[in-house]
Design a protein around this nucleic acid. Structure first.
Lengths: 216, 216
DNA sequence: CACGACTTTGGATCGACGATCCAAACGTGC
DNA sequence: GCACGTTTGGATCGTCGATCCAAAGTCGTG
């Protein structure tokens, strides 16, 4: 038999390798074959530490989200803290787009629980009355999840030479739509071409916060 | 050779069969093997009309979403019309949860285009000023997409005896969390157990509409 | 130091999937 | 009635997640 590894193959090592594969090649790149190659091991060693592929994806997601959400609270007013946390989530998902898809796919895993807790806490500090808290937190989390999913979808296209080219192509299609039948989309094409995802995300957060303020 | 089909195998027939498989068994149930069985045909006949599996899923999604979005506009005030359209989307996705996952997965396909157009048009009628229109429509659509994804995730669990049992189990886990570390989630457990998805969705829509109203 | 029980590891293997390919069956125009 | 393009069914390929098992290592006990 071939020589075996001497160092211990912990779950952390496997999760780190999986995260690397995901970041480099997207969700499609995470296969057990690629993992065995990268770790110079076999299937048995991996399945000994990891239940299945879902478990592996969830563990990687928990690691990434945990880093963002469990960071120290900046002692800013709740409204600013909320924007900071939301932006932190956006940036993390922008850097690891597969996280966005995973959060939507298995929302009951620990990662989203941390998100809920953090957002719920900040909304409480913001003075949202009790009965509305559940609705408000749900709406905000769902908005973030929606954006996260879009982000993941965009990233899946990065086989494209670059993302701007793809967005430009879509914008071109939108512009060529019949302005009678699609007046809004036709007009929105220009903004699609040169908008900033991050700023638009924040604009959505602000709309939501303005809506929350009316619940008081 | 076995006798061949005499009637024409159109793309519509294939899409209808695919929709049936998806509704009955979720996304995992849509395989080309199951399709050939249901249609009493072979792979060639299907691939002759359909480019690949993504194409098939997109076509099925376009059909479902098109039915909802291209319906006659109820001549209600814009705000009511917006709520009606949003609820129509929610109900369609509730009935066909795989649509929710697909909308997030390939947002550039026609289905979401129709949604954008409809929501953008109603926001214009609502009096949202031009520069904010793009942000407002994006926020609203992303919220809907987030809820849609959650819906799809819930449905994927219906292998569970019933959904209430699963929600109750999650709520039980939430209640057993340390109230010091998870004060919000701990409190939210009770509401999770007996909340109404549809009402919570509408509450979120109202929050966004209230926020959008401040843009005026 | 020896030996057996238990843990960790590597790879062969399985069944299912999406996709490709090809020849048989069909219809249509000449 | 014949030839040619279209439609159809199924064999087949490569890849995937997952299972399984025996070899290799580790450690406690005498």
């Amino acid at each position: 038999m071939a020589p075996r590894r001497t160092d211990e193959l912990t779950k952390d090592v496997i999760v780190a390798a999986a995260t690397g594969l995901l970041d480099e090649g997207g969700e499609a790149a995470l296969t057990f074959r690629a993992l065995t190659t990268r770790l110079s091991t076999g299937y048995g060693a991996i399945y000994h530490r990891v239940a299945n592929k879902s478990d592996l994806l969830a563990a990687a997601t928990d690691t990434v989200v945990g880093r963002v959400v469990t960071g120290a609270v900046p002692d800013a007013p709740p409204r600013e803290a909320l924007r900071t946390v939301a932006l932190g989530l956006f940036d993390a998902i922008d850097e690891h787009p597969w996280v966005g898809a995973q959060l939507s796919r298995e929302p009951w895993r620990p990662a989203l629980l941390e998100v809920y807790e953090r957002i719920g806490g900040l909304l409480t500090a913001l003075g949202v009355p009790g009965p509305s808290l559940f609705d408000a937190a749900g709406a905000l989390v769902n908005y973030v999840l929606g954006v996260a999913g879009q982000n993941a979808a965009n990233a899946r296209l990065s086989a494209e030479p670059d993302r701007d080219a793809f967005l430009g192509r879509i914008a071109g299609q939108w512009e060529q739509l019949d302005p009678e039948r699609y007046p809004f989309v036709h007009r929105a094409a220009a903004q699609l071409r040169d908008h900033d995802d991050r700023e638009q995300f924040l604009a959505g957060i602000d709309i939501f916060l303005a809506g929350i303020a009316t619940l008081r």
